[in-house]
Design a protein around this nucleic acid. Structure first.
Lengths: 169, 169
DNA sequence: CGGATTGTTCAATTGAAAATGAACAATCCG
DNA sequence: CGGATTGTTCATTTTCAATTGAACAATCCG
């Protein structure tokens, strides 16, 4: 039960802090919560898979945060349960997915696609509303703008698969 | 001074509300403040350029928000000052840039590049820290992970120009 | 069974980012 | 000049999403 020089000690060492900080900033750019970056960051720089409890202890976050964070990371395909935890271990350990392809794919699928799809349907609605405008000049102007939005949505749809392809190596 | 059927009236009509709502959600996905979406949305669906005061009145936002919002939109290249406002008009009017290429370019230049660049330099730092680790096995593991991050950064650097190209038509 | 361990849920709290608004330029013009 | 108009800045307030923490499953095992 000595704590010194024990990797399950409570505090992060400087390198771990650096990495966690890197990912905290990284996920903020993506609009994801800080805890996601902390959890993924620590997993990324840990040799061995970690359990929920490890994350709580080492990062000093609540069980709630860790649980929800892991759920989101799982849904993004950014972490997976580590199979080979030997012995009669009951709790589940997690390890990071480190292939950019997989990470980008999950992010696109979970965070971007849904917005793009709902955007498309809102533009369709918009087209209807604009089509019902009385004044012909005004209607023409509005149609042009709506047409522009449709263009944007099409570009978006074309970009995503391409993105995945490029990041896939 | 009659307000009815006057486009400078205070409230948004249903179509305008729809469009503004569309952009509010859009910019949230990009991690930009709501007011940015409101301002750009109203400009996008207005036939004539609008001045700061118009935005304040029609959107019901503060002068401060409008001023800061316009500044950011200008820096993103998403709005421009409308030249041809005739008469002895002193205040400046704004119109939206509607080319996706330009919008994406501005966003990449202002919001993504800086993060990517700072990310690269942080990874360089990381490499140093990892190189100074005593235990050879641990050092090897860390080097692999850092190498992975360098890979990511390179991919990011390659993706951006490509993105701009695809969105450029 | 029962209590120990592991994980989830969700109402309440917190904190970080955005919006406000009032004071302060800057420019115009009679 | 002086006061009217237009726009900016920035300390305070507000807002809303993230986090907490306590209650609640669920599973294990002696």
């Amino acid at each position: 039960m000595s704590a010194a020089a024990d990797d399950s000690g409570d505090d992060l060492d400087p390198l771990e802090r650096q990495v966690v900080g890197f990912f905290v900033d990284g996920v903020r750019v993506l609009g994801l919560p800080r805890s996601i970056g902390e959890i993924y960051g620590l997993l990324f720089i840990s040799r061995d898979p970690l359990a929920l409890d490890d994350l709580v202890r080492r990062l000093g976050i609540s069980k709630g945060s860790a649980s929800q964070g892991l759920r989101m990371l799982k849904s993004l395909g950014a972490v997976r349960e580590a199979g080979g935890n030997g012995n009669g271990e009951r709790r589940t350990y997690y390890e990071p997915a480190v292939e950019l392809k997989r990470l980008a794919g999950g992010f696109i699928r979970e965070q971007i696609r849904p917005h793009l799809d709902s955007g498309k349907s809102r533009v369709r609605q918009l087209a209807e509303t604009a089509g019902a405008v009385e004044d012909p000049d005004q209607r023409k102007f509005l149609s042009e703008r709506v047409e522009r939005l449709e263009q944007w949505m099409r570009s978006g749809g074309r970009v995503l698969p391409l993105l995945q392809k490029i990041l896939g190596q």
